[in-house]
Design a protein around this nucleic acid. Structure first.
Lengths: 224, 224
DNA sequence: GCGGCGCGGATGTGATCACAAATATCGGCG
DNA sequence: CGCCGATATTTGTGATCACATCCGCGCCGC
């Protein structure tokens, strides 16, 4: 009901712009786990008042992409090992379902987009571009899942991603050290073959592999 | 940081009280699907200003317990059949996992509490108490899942519940008409026997049965 | 040298206000 | 009698402000 500001990027309300900006920062790993932010800082950063900043923060807190202490201090959550295990388990349960639902709706164009993203992922791995890697990996999965036309399920998965994202960047350092099976390629083969069972299994293993990489990282910083 | 109001129920911030009040109304089915609310109405209702009302609403919108039109009007969502199918599928995937995780931590006291709730459920069914039925059914599941000590998974499930809750009351009218298998009792037996497989299956079927009851209801009002 | 105390800045909360857009209401015209 | 347009009301948005609390830091006493 109010886009009073003249230079509005795309007719979006201020709180929505703030939300998207913060969300993107979290998902791409720009914000480190444990990092704290302030309403006034966000507001000044994005050129708005505290009110829309607060709404955006509260929305992200509801989605558990940010957390607030009892006294109201805002920070990026630092999930313990147990929490991360839960989150990856949720991904294991939900993402194969999304992949299978997407399967019948996936056309050649989507597959080629996914292949391009997979190539970009390997390029980022080789070139040492951690941020690009995280973004391309997100895009690979998102591209597939949005074909499922299951917004409620996608929303659940995105909430989980928001919580695991700050750690994906840390995984990156371990990518070179471990010999990784390429489940993305397996998923692409299953997509082209129309094999639902194989697709579900490839996605599940891709998630499980991510979880396995994260586990030692979570351990060495104990809890919280 | 600010509990300026004298008669504060429990030291909770105003926006938190508003959030809980609205959430309870939605979960218990007091608010009908499609019903619309206004910030000023909520604020006046609960004796606060618009600011905390807005924050609570935005939080609930983030959790999809409320929705906002493009122009900002607030209403209780009316999920179409496809959306409901997604939500119940998510419950089928997530709730058995929670039940299995709870199993080793469930003691006699919890079981007897669940038995009492199950008895209350049947009492409400017999007595025609729709609201009591919804609440007792929620409590039955919640009592089990909170034993799992898996807050991230519980949060996901609760988000789904928030979206399906407005329809649970409609289910109620169909409870008498269909012959229902008592999966709650099956779950309780599995709990006492320590049988994880049977427990997961009982919970899955309980959810599936709810979904089956809802399906014709969703159909006769087509979409939205 | 060290620990507790107090003060000042920083921070979230909530109320109020002006404003713009959407919706509802009502009167006039065909 | 019905439909359309103008106006009034309703409603969400965002800025600003006062306030209570919390955190950090330096100072004083032991």
């Amino acid at each position: 009901m109010a886009l009073p500001d003249p230079q509005e990027i795309a007719g979006l309300p201020a709180h929505e712009r703030v939300y998207r900006a913060l969300r993107a920062r979290i998902l791409s790993g720009e914000m480190a786990p444990g990092e704290s932010v302030t309403l006034r800082g966000i507001a000044e950063d994005l050129g708005v008042s505290m009110t829309p900043a607060r709404e955006a923060v509260r929305r992200l807190v509801a989605e558990r992409g940010l957390e607030m202490t009892a006294s109201g201090r805002i920070s990026v959550p630092v999930p313990g090992a147990a929490r991360l295990e839960e989150l990856f388990r949720a991904r294991e349960l939900l993402e194969p379902e999304l992949a299978v639902r997407a399967l019948p709706r996936v056309n050649k164009q989507v597959i080629s987009r996914m292949k391009a993203l997979d190539a970009a992922i390997e390029r980022c791995m080789a070139g040492g571009d951690a941020l690009g890697y995280v973004r391309a990996n997100n895009a690979f999965h998102t591209t597939l899942y949005e074909q499922a036309e299951a917004p409620a399920l996608v929303a659940l998965v995105e909430s989980v991603w928001l919580q695991t994202a700050p750690f994906m960047r840390r995984i990156y350092g371990r990518l070179g050290t471990a010999a990784l099976a390429d489940y993305h390629e397996a998923a692409l083969r299953a997509l082209e073959a129309g094999d639902a069972r194989a697709l579900a299994e490839a996605i599940r293993q891709d998630v499980a592999q991510g979880a396995a990489l994260l586990r030692p990282a979570a351990l060495d910083q104990t809890d919280l």
